[in-house]
Design a protein around this nucleic acid. Structure first.
Lengths: 245, 245
DNA sequence: GCAATAGTGTCTATGAGACAATATAGC
DNA sequence: GCTATATTGTCTCATAGACACTATTGC
């Protein structure tokens, strides 16, 4: 501690954390999953005021006693509602202003998570009377959301959609083993447009590995793949189509 | 207010904002500029504890009375030190944990800004005894930084460097009019490697417009350009070279 | 055989990398 | 002329898009 000095430690001893008014600090997690040919986002029905009885995204206050950092807050909330322990989790943005919460100045750090539908076991838990997957269509869910959560969802979808153009992120929405066709369906749903299957295969094959198994069906069986190096997502050198900026 | 109800307004009336302990909320701004063939970042010498007398990035607490949102906090801090009113400003990341500030749990939202050297008029102002551009070399400045600011700077440089591969961001470090060669120098400094000049011109010309003027010198004069549509930065469809992920 | 889905072959278009060639200034 | 820097020409290479073609299943 080269910067430390007697006067600094004395300063800290006398420092009063409640000296200035602080905004509230929360974390929201936009949890996506894919099933029934649709993207879904996890929503909870709020048990308490404000917005009691409204649907909202998953979120909560940072727990200064138990969370070591804000990402832990996000993981805790996510596991509390879905039971999923190591999802794809990425920090999206932080929104802070005087108006977003009727209780006053509020700052929220928004994460977005991708979980496989099979892995999630929903549980309302503390603060919620219900929890459910809400179908995402047209940058929205079918009901209004509390606070500025509709805006947050929209922002998140835009970022996700853009990132899908040059990453393998949708792979994290899949079960452990899947066919290229199934993965392409997910890409097409998220992007809202069809993708050439030859170009898609060529591109995506680089980050998949064969399982040796096949998916049986009423027509020609498809090879089952899994994601290669699950550590970090892959970034392609080129975007898939129309640049969105 | 469809969600509102008598009980909600009563709840709000009785709501005590100091009920739960809150972390401190600050904003840090990594302000970059380019001159003397080097990237520089703005640093201030701290007037107060903690880290009194150390150099640090520009930052400060959110002012609940005067800032309408956290981006305004960032702009306020930036203008306070540089006088620049509308720089390129982008939110980078939010870091929150119990250890980064000796005063306790602290959350900071980090922005990064690009300003033209000519536009900045430095002023130490409140909380600083000095302010200066620190030369950036090897992901670092020449002196230690307070708090976790060295880490934040490194993170910021990595993100910036990566973004330079597919955007026109370095254009915001230039004076209003500049030559393609000058812009290429900036790209090369940031990336830490040489760039083929033909490929660079081809790519960058799409987002520049001629001023009709030329830069005189001891050799062949170079055309002066300015950035096209100053509104939003351009994203190229392809990266410039080795993908960094 | 047919229908349906899986998977391949192959041509074109775009734009980056490499690098040689040419242009224009001061001397 | 020579030097230095600016600017262009052009070949190659990687990879996306388009789209026709072949393969394998159930019926």
């Amino acid at each position: 501690m080269s910067h430390s000095s007697k006067s600094e430690s004395e300063f800290l001893k006398k420092y009063d954390v409640s000296q200035f008014e602080r905004p509230s600090s929360s974390v929201d997690v936009v949890i996506f999953s894919y099933f029934n040919e649709n993207l879904h986002v996890l929503t909870i029905k709020r048990a308490e005021h404000p917005f009691q009885g409204s649907w909202s995204l998953v979120g909560g206050y940072v727990d200064l006693k138990n969370d070591r950092n804000i990402e832990e807050t996000a993981r805790r909330k996510l596991e509390e509602k879905t039971g999923v322990k190591s999802p794809y989790l990425e920090q999206l943005i932080t929104i802070g202003n005087a108006d977003r919460d009727p209780r006053g100045w509020s700052i929220t750090t928004v994460y977005f998570a991708l979980v496989s539908f099979e892995d999630a076991v929903l549980k309302a838990g503390y603060g919620a009377t219900d929890v459910q997957w809400s179908k995402v269509t047209q940058n929205k869910v079918g009901h209004p959301l509390a606070f500025d959560h509709s805006q947050i969802l929209k922002l998140c979808l835009e970022r996700f959609r853009n990132k899908v153009l040059y990453t393998s992120l949708p792979g994290h929405l899949m079960p452990k083993e899947f066919t290229i066709g199934e993965l392409q369906d997910v890409y097409e749903t998220i992007l809202g447009k069809l993708v050439d299957h030859k170009a898609f295969r060529r591109r995506i094959l680089g980050i998949l590995e064969e399982t040796g198994k096949e998916k049986e069906g009423p027509t020609r069986p498809a090879k089952l793949y899994r994601l290669k190096n699950l550590k970090k997502p892959h970034f392609f050198m080129r975007n898939m189509e129309g640049n969105s900026s």
